[in-house]
Design a protein around this nucleic acid. Sequence first.
DNA 1: ATGTCACCTTACCGTTTGGTAATGATGTTT
DNA 2: AAACATCATTACCAAACGGTAAGGTGACAT
Lengths: 224, 224
Amino acid sequence: MKLLLVEDEPELGRQVTAWMNDAGHQLHWENTARQALASLQKESCDVVILDVGLPDMDGFSLVQRLREADLRMPVLFLTARADVSDRVKGLAAGGDDYLTKPFAFEELLARLEALHRRANNHVPSQRLLGGCRLDLVRRRVICGNEHIEFQPREWGLLEVLMNHEGRVLPKKFLLEQVWDIHFDPGTNVVDAMVCRLRRKLEVPGCGVQIETIRGKGYVFKTLA
Amino acid sequence: MKLLLVEDEPELGRQVTAWMNDAGHQLHWENTARQALASLQKESCDVVILDVGLPDMDGFSLVQRLREADLRMPVLFLTARADVSDRVKGLAAGGDDYLTKPFAFEELLARLEALHRRANNHVPSQRLLGGCRLDLVRRRVICGNEHIEFQPREWGLLEVLMNHEGRVLPKKFLLEQVWDIHFDPGTNVVDAMVCRLRRKLEVPGCGVQIETIRGKGYVFKTLA
DNA sequence: ATGTCACCTTACCGTTTGGTAATGATGTTT
DNA sequence: AAACATCATTACCAAACGGTAAGGTGACAT
């Protein structure tokens, strides 16, 4: 596992570095938020371990900066600030876990591994849905021995729908997610595209369908 | 957020149910591991809140059962067992977070939301290459704070090139892989597309380039 | 130096993609 | 049942995509 530790206290930094190396992980240690950001821009890592009290910026702001820069790796806060309000703040800012000092090294390790497991495990290149297989990288649906190809827009819509399987998604929401339109242009793009999607998905054993909830939106459903 | 609480203590169950409803979430409450499993088989949820000490099975075993059944929703342990060894056990068994009683409701909520955010915000499978990040699902290259978008054909070519980084790829090979053309149509499609790719990739810190090996083909190289 | 060949670049244009709007169908309300 | 609202479907067309070909550029050999 490739880790980045952002910590300004030398003693703890050395300690954690030693521990992680012992545990067979690769840890890079930065002292300031600025350096950490620069480092992550250059080279990604699996999990970031973040102190809250840094010399140049607090950890909460750093996480927000990361997310704004579209750097989505898991972040674990490791800090002496144990108040519930701090914990909530850290998690709400975009952190994934929050561990307070003093802590047991085994727990830190277990939490890091849990975060890593979740982050890696979460993007299978394929996904089973209803009676068919979705190839997320090649952007097609394989259904029996039928291959269904999709145009970019169609795929975008399909992705959002299936990521919210079973939920009613208002057209407004779909317009935002797929078209990045945050106002109502008074058109029926969504309807038209749903129509096209439906036609492509009506293959015998496909087992997925897009239902209409009148006045509410569309739901993506898998059958059997 | 759709939650499942697995807890045999009635008082706590009622309490959490009330809190979550207040917070605008939908919580379903089961008393036993068996019922929880059955419920999740029928209908998925966003996050499971799990007690460790259940009448019919311990929580750690339940998580393992879930994972074996390919039910991958995030699991948060909520329990009085505060030993480090228990925490490690829970996380290692496949849990995503571990919170000990007594706890603050706001922290539970923040942790649930963090788990939900992470699970939904499906981290795109990314790949680091040269000085930039490739987003394989969204089909774009992120370079510093520059986002480079690609057309389907361009992306197809880029994929093949980078999957054979450092190898000289003859045009014939590229024609087969990207265009699925197994004869020489006597055209310069490849040359033209390489030209378009190069133009898009000439971004300051990008650190990748396509070299020409005269008479042999093209090589995709990463610099620095 | 000059010719030749491979590759680069550009402009062009047919094809595909995808948004619009009109029309038809289907619920829903009165 | 009639009026209305919402959704489905279709045809159309502008814009984007992507293949072609022509002319330019640079490398290499004679």
